[in-house]
Amino acid sequence: MGSQIHTYTFNASLEVLEEIRNLISQKGNEHGYSKKEIYNLTLAVDEIATNIINHGYIEKGIKKGTFNMLIELHEKQLIVRLVDGAVPYNPIDQNLPSEELLNTPLEDRPIGGLGIMIAKQSVDEFKYEFIEGKNNNIFVVNKK
C-alpha cells in the first residue's frame, strides 16, 4: 500500500480533544496498531494539543483560532502532525520534571509540567519543526 495522508481542521477549543483521539484511534485500528500503541499515541497528541489550545490560543485571547492535524499512514509508520500558527513554541526545549520531582510526594508537587514528559515518553519519536511560520509537533509510531 502507498502512503495516505488525512488532514483535519479544528477550532482551538478543548472540546475538540475527544474527536482528535477518536480519529487517531480509528485510523490506528484500521491499520493494525495495538491497543497500547494507539492509546499512547492519543495520549501524547492529547497532551500537546491541550497545550496548543490553552497556551497558544485561549490564554492569548485568540477567539477564532484553528489548527490542523494530519494523520499520515505509511507502510512502517503512523505519524500524527499538529500544525498551528500560534506563537512559536518548541516543547522539546522545555525542561522535563527531574527524577527528584517525580519522587516528590503529591502534596508537595507543583500542579503541571507533566504533559510534555508524557508526550515524549509515549511515542517512538516526538519532534518539533518550525515550518513556514507554523509550529509542527510530530508524533511517530513505528509498526512493530
Binding site: T42, L43, E47, E107, R109, L114
Partner: peptide, 16 residues
C-alpha cells in the same frame, strides 16, 4: 478509559 495529565493534576489537587 482515558486519563491525560489533567487527571493527574486533579489527583494532586485532591491531595493538597
Amino acid at each position: 478509559s482515558f486519563m491525560a495529565s489533567a487527571g493527574l493534576r486533579m489527583i494532586i489537587f485532591a491531595k493538597q
